[in-house]
Amino acid sequence: MKKTALNYFKTVGYCFVILVSIACSKDNAEEGIEVHNPLENPQDGPPAGNPNGNSPIPVGAGTESVTNPDVVIGNGTPESCTCDAVVAAVAQGGKITFNCGPNPVTIVMDRPARVFNNANPDVVIDGGGLVTLSGGGTTRILYMNTCDPDLVWTTDHCQNQDHPRVTVQNITFADGHNMDTGSSGGGAAIWARGGRLKVVNCRFFNNRCVGTGPDVGGGAIRAFSQYNSLPIYVVNTTFGGGSIYGNSGSNGGAISSIGTSWTIINSLFSYNKAIGNGGNPAQSGTPGGGSGGAIYNDGNEMTLTILGSLIEQNEVNAYGSSIFFVSNNHTGDIRIDNSTIRNNIGGSWYPVYPSISMHDDTPIVVTNSTIQ
């Protein structure tokens, strides 16, 4: 399955030369912020996943079946695959596939697709290796939040409920944009709280969130409160992969979370940047941020497991050029196996391994891996 998905993205990324871009007609570009130029052709980007990753995929971490989909976006033509159709499909939930024609297609969003908590408890968005959802440099792409009343409260314990269970697979997220500085800031491609999130065979290119602040970030993904503290699976997925494809934010150039565990398998993180400065809490005279070039984990009980992955050429201004991992009550732990972490740039406070910032007493187990 891994080789098939990887080769599929190579095929659609490099063999086809025709790209159709469908844009919703709304210009909500903001003033006074870093200019965000969307990629001309995201499908030309690197393939999904670490090409040398060969760690096994546990049960439950792979792709979901989309046989007999509940919603098919498009009628076989690129023009039929619109952002309005994506928004409506995600609101309905269930198994979602695309029929936009045989060639790669980029659907430019003018607003996030939102997951409603009282719709289908399972949401699977499968791009078939041909679809890019683009924020166009103006908007976040996908939003799920079990504690947002606008998405309907369905339990009295919204911070810990087992649904919606959202899987994104075989799809690219590009040019997401979010400059919010409050509690819902960060996560320019995906913002997720509650239920479960899983990411398989995906690519995240050139997503950007707010660039300063001590407790905001996740250029691509920002996450909280997964059900029963179960991990988010990220499998065979690329964040960045080239100098023009990297994601950025104040903290966690690729991913950022609070109190959330991650299991990352056969994935690639490169050229992502944590662009804030001053750390957390912010040093006097600074706006704060700048930690976790690829990955930013903060909170209490949480785990970070990295298997078969490559983390390189990520950059910070403060701490943790590859990984920033701070468990406030000193209960978290890190496991790294069959992986390579190298040539990450900047930062300080590396008590045990280069480019990894963590407390001295954080348990970390490294096997069959290179960290330099």
Rank of each mutant, 00 (worst) to 15 (best):
A220S: 09
A220N: 02
I221D: 12
R222V: 01
R222F: 07
R222K: 15
A223Q: 01
F224W: 13
S225Y: 15
S225H: 15
N228A: 15
S229N: 15
L230V: 08
P231T: 13
V235Q: 07
T237Q: 06
T237V: 06
T237C: 07
T238C: 12
F239W: 12
F239G: 00
G241R: 02
G241K: 02
G242R: 03
S243V: 15
S243M: 10
Y245W: 13
S250V: 02
N251S: 04
N251P: 02
I255C: 01
S257F: 01
S257V: 00
G259C: 04
T260E: 10
S261V: 03
S261C: 07
S261H: 07
S261A: 11
W262V: 05
W262N: 08
T263S: 14
T263P: 02
I264L: 05
I264Y: 08
N266F: 12
S267D: 08
S267F: 06
S267V: 07
Y271T: 06
A274N: 07
A274R: 03
I275P: 00
G276W: 08
G276M: 08
G279I: 15
P281L: 14
A282E: 11
Q283V: 09
Q283P: 03
S284H: 11
G285H: 06
T286F: 03
T286N: 06
G288A: 01
G289P: 08
G290H: 04
G292M: 06
G293V: 07
I295W: 04
Y296L: 05
Y296V: 08
Y296K: 13
N297P: 01
N297C: 14
D298F: 11
G299A: 10
N300T: 14
N300H: 10
M302D: 06
M302N: 04
T303M: 09
T303C: 04
L304Y: 02
T305G: 09
T305V: 14
T305Q: 14
L307S: 11
L310W: 01
I311K: 04
I311L: 12
Q313E: 12
N314H: 00
N314P: 01
E315T: 13
V316L: 05
A318H: 13
Y319F: 11
G320R: 11
S321C: 08
S321R: 07
S322N: 10
I323M: 06
I323H: 09
F324N: 11
F325K: 14
V326M: 15
